[in-house]
Design a protein around this nucleic acid. Structure first.
Lengths: 231, 231
DNA sequence: CAGTATCCAGTTGGATACTG
DNA sequence: CAGTATCCAACTGGATACTG
């Protein structure tokens, strides 16, 4: 009987539901608005479909998630119980940002980053018509075919491409994956990244200037960091 | 590589540290003020010493816990990082209280309950001298030798006994373990428990009257419960 | 699209006993 | 008191392939 603490303590009862591997990340995806099985999967690509299915069923049983059949589509939603986890998940994220700085190589997933970035493009700020932003990662640990990415922004959608879509590129971001991720997380700011040379912009001047407004950072980026006590 | 998500998301990084089985309960014990290995064990009796040791080491490595050698004693403390988990653990407890009502038989541990209760006796409210409270659990699923408990309260300490300490008993609480646990958690209140007959007091009148002031409930007990939408 | 089915290697953690 | 040591059954979850 794993995942069973034999305690009436409400923290223990909560953790019986929540402490299984991946569970809170699935809830995070639902918080972010993913509704369909494969949409959730995009947020947790290292999770096998069998396991995602199992976790969703568990969460439905626990009353945290509701499953609906919309025609032949299936959608998942947080219940009221699940929605009450949102502030907790955000607090956990803020805690992680403040206290877990080390990012291993394996945490640096360009697909996940581009997916996050694309969800947070400020469509209002981008000019009408089509705008293309290119990302060139200079890391040599990244597979060569994952070093170039394009965001194709149109009036109502943002597409992520890992191949050249062939359109005119307004601005190219040349950096390491780690730098862009640290920027996204708010570990560093735009000025710092540009000044240090870890990140360079090329392309049209207006686009270079405007990029930080187009590309919004993680909603947790403004989290204040702990004061350094030393080192 | 378990306990590794391959994501730079701060929630994922936080959960790499926190989502292992037992981890948050160990932190809860440290929050409650347990400092020594065997004191922590009392709060997580189903955890093997080997596993507790492993978790503590992991938490030290993660910077959440500090280990100190005080002479030949060893003490554990939350670091600043660990202390910042307190509001999160409390929120998880409140969430658990609101949304996870089902308590299985195996969650009903009399030892854990008495341990919690003894930590929360209001020494100010109890008369000077020695006061003994007896608990008689009528559950037949409980082992016969775990049906009777005594709290021996003196000026500066509360002792838990699972054997008759032989002193005069001021008040006896006759109930089921489940009822007393639900009372402790705040699922029901004293008046409700007494009126329904699920809990009965015998012994000296003043002690019967004063008991609810001596015996404070869980600090989470006042958590508001979700409005019933139906049934 | 939304999952199931199957398989299996690896790990977890429970039980128990023991040590400085 | 504060852990280690050892053992092993059970379970987890990764990989892969397949289905309605």
């Amino acid at each position: 009987m794993p995942t069973m603490y034999g305690q009436f303590c409400p923290v223990a009862k909560a953790m019986e539901v929540l402490d299984e591997r991946w569970t809170l990340l699935v809830i995070r995806e639902l918080m972010m608005g993913s509704r369909h099985f494969n949409a959730i999967r995009r947020g947790v690509p290292r999770m096998s479909p069998a396991l995602l299915s199992k976790r969703l069923q568990m969460l439905v049983r626990a009353g945290v998630v509701e499953r609906h059949r919309d025609g032949n589509r299936v959608t998942y939603h947080l219940t009221e119980s699940g929605r009450e986890l949102e502030p907790i998940v955000l607090s956990l994220g803020r805690w992680g940002l403040r206290w877990i700085h080390q990012l291993g190589e394996e945490d640096l997933d360009p697909h996940l980053l581009l997916w996050d970035v694309h969800r947070n493009i400020d469509l209002e700020a981008v000019p009408d018509g089509r705008t293309v932003i290119q990302f060139r990662f200079s890391d040599d640990v990244i597979a060569p075919n994952a070093r170039n990415w394009w965001l194709v922004i149109t009036a109502d959608a943002v597409d992520v491409c890992d191949f050249d879509p062939g359109h005119h590129v307004a601005v190219t971001v040349q950096t390491t994956l780690r730098t862009l991720i640290r920027l996204w997380r708010g570990d560093i700011g735009w000025p710092e990244a540009l000044r240090s040379g870890d990140l360079a912009l090329t392309g049209e001047t207006y686009a270079q200037r405007a990029l930080p407004r187009w590309l919004k950072l993680s909603s947790l980026a403004p989290t204040p960091r702990p004061m350094l006590t030393s080192a």
